[in-house]
Design a protein around this nucleic acid. Structure first.
Length: 428
RNA sequence: GGAGACGUGGCCGAGAGGCUGAAGGCGCUCCCCUGCUAAGGGAGUAUAGGGUUUGUAGCUCUAUCGAGGGUUCGAAUCCCUCCGUCUCCGCCA
């Protein structure tokens, strides 16, 4: 959420910046609602003050044994006025709140202006795509040929866009996960294990709700396990439970930055992306991901974004997978993000770079929703800045390893960094 | 799943319709005293929002005693629902 004070004082400037990311802010409506809010809120508070002081007077009179009947009569009419004023004030504030919750973050000044992913800017490349002396297969062909991938089984068990991995491939996915977690521990991250099911407050905190409910798997409430009326959801990314660790917390400045890494499955219904990447492991309803989260001092967040992106890159470098780093333009950046770097890995099967990690600085956008703050000495609490990045999407890394390490006969060489995690074997 | 107890400020802990944003203690900050240390004296010490304002200063108003409703002129206190914690039993990895 943006700072409401900023929206009041610099509404036109905010609207202009949001326009770059294709978001039309209804300036007139906000101005009118804010004017109403000011009037209604003031009125309600004045009436509350009036009631409080009169009630206090009644208490005093009663204590002195005076007749309070006339005082009660006086305050009688106040009650209905107050209820009316409070209801009107609450209603307009709720309306404003809902609009504000749907406004995306402002892009950082260093973010290139653009309207779509075509305007993203490549800022560096690492590694050279290998020159194969045979025609590269894609990961589906490679995995199916070896009997490691069974799409039909997944469909039988559940539905489309899930996968069953078998044997060495399943094991390699686990090995990759371990390798990533261990590497990030070396980078200074502390490993966390978190719930895969979260409540609405958590999803609002990181910005998935209220706008993106359609992308989430919501759990039904239909049996004796549901003793409450809360709506629960499967996590779309570990960002949600991990970042929410600091919700409603005031952190001691000396404890910043918090660096956390976790591995979870991610569940996405991906409504709207049907038809894209229907084949194979690229776009699934369920996938494994290792996620880095940092909670930092506001002055350090851009420094932290560079470092965090570097941590994700380190995984690709150790696996010797060619990739490039792209700065997302204003039109392609995520809802909550102020700046995002995507890492795109080379996939020989597609002869293209494909997203494998997304590293973002949310500045105080999530922190404001989360009420995640830090305190410096005796000063007032201040909002922290939050960042996260995939380090990496494990399923896609598996794809990248298969395709980049394939031999002509369909066997797969094991990246050196991964060999210790696979009992030292060199080829699958 | 069954039965009971309980959720108050950074922490501990009073309060049981009005004078309580909340006693007391601990912790913390500042000051005084004491030639180190220890002890002592004094003051201060929640968060958010609104109004005023050039101002995140000051002043002022409002809200917050797990959360949300309700009763009442007035709720930390009474009622309801939910969430959570603890103890005992059951079940279970």
């Amino acid at each position: 959420m943006l700072d409401p004070k900023l929206l009041r004082s610099e509404l036109a400037e905010v609207a202009a910046k949001l326009k770059h990311r294709g978001f039309e802010l209804d300036v007139e409506k906000i101005e009118s609602l804010e004017a109403q809010r000011k009037e209604l809120q003031t009125r309600a508070q004045d009436l509350q003050a009036e009631r409080n002081s009169r009630s206090k007077g009644i208490g005093k009179a009663k204590a002195q044994g005076e007749d309070i009947a006339p005082l009660l009569a006086e305050v009688e009419s106040l009650k209905s006025q107050l209820e009316e004023a409070e209801a009107a004030s609450t209603a307009v504030q709720a309306e404003i709140e809902e609009i504000y919750a749907g406004i995306p973050n402002l892009p950082h000044e260093s973010v290139p202006v653009g309207s779509s992913e075509d305007d993203n800017i490549e800022i560096r490349k690492w590694g050279e795509p290998a020159q194969l002396d045979f025609e590269a297969k894609d990961h589906v062909d490679l995995a199916e040929q070896n009997g490691w991938y069974d799409n039909d089984a997944a469909v039988k068990i559940t539905s489309a866009r899930f996968s069953v991995l078998k044997g060495p491939l399943a094991r390699m996915q686990r090995a990759l996960t371990q390798f990533m977690l261990d590497t990030h521990a070396e980078h200074g991250y502390s490993e966390v294990y978190v719930p895969y099911i979260v409540n609405q407050d958590s999803l609002r905190g990181t910005g998935q709700l209220p706008k993106f409910e359609a992308d989430l798997y919501k759990l039904g409430k239909n049996d004796e396990h549901d003793t409450n009326d809360r709506d629960l959801y499967l996590i779309p990314t570990a960002e949600v439970p991990i970042t929410n660790l600091v919700r409603d917390e005031i952190i001691d400045e000396a404890d910043l930055p918090l660096m956390m890494v976790g591995h979870t499955p991610c569940f996405r219904s991906e409504a709207g992306s049907y038809g894209k990447d229907t084949r194979g492991l690229i776009r699934q309803h369920q996938f494994e991901k290792v996620e880095m989260v940092q909670v930092v001092h506001p002055e350090k967040s851009y420094e932290a974004l560079e470092a965090l992106t570097g941590h994700a890159e380190a995984i690709l470098q150790k696996l010797e997978l060619p990739y490039r780093v792209v700065t997302l333009c204003t039109g392609d950046i995520g809802f909550s993000s102020a700046k995002t770097y995507d890492l795109e890995v080379w996939l020989p099967g597609q002869a293209a770079y494909r997203e494998i990690s997304s590293c973002s600085n949310f500045e105080d956008f999530q922190a404001r929703r989360l009420k995640a703050r830090f305190r410096s000495g005796q000063d007032k609490p201040q909002l922290v800045h939050t960042l996260n990045g995939s380090g990496l999407a494990v399923g896609r890394t598996l794809v990248a390893v298969l395709e980049n390490y394939q031999n002509a006969d369909g066997t797969i060489r094991v990246p050196k960094a991964l060999q210790p995690y696979l009992g030292g074997i060199e080829t699958l």
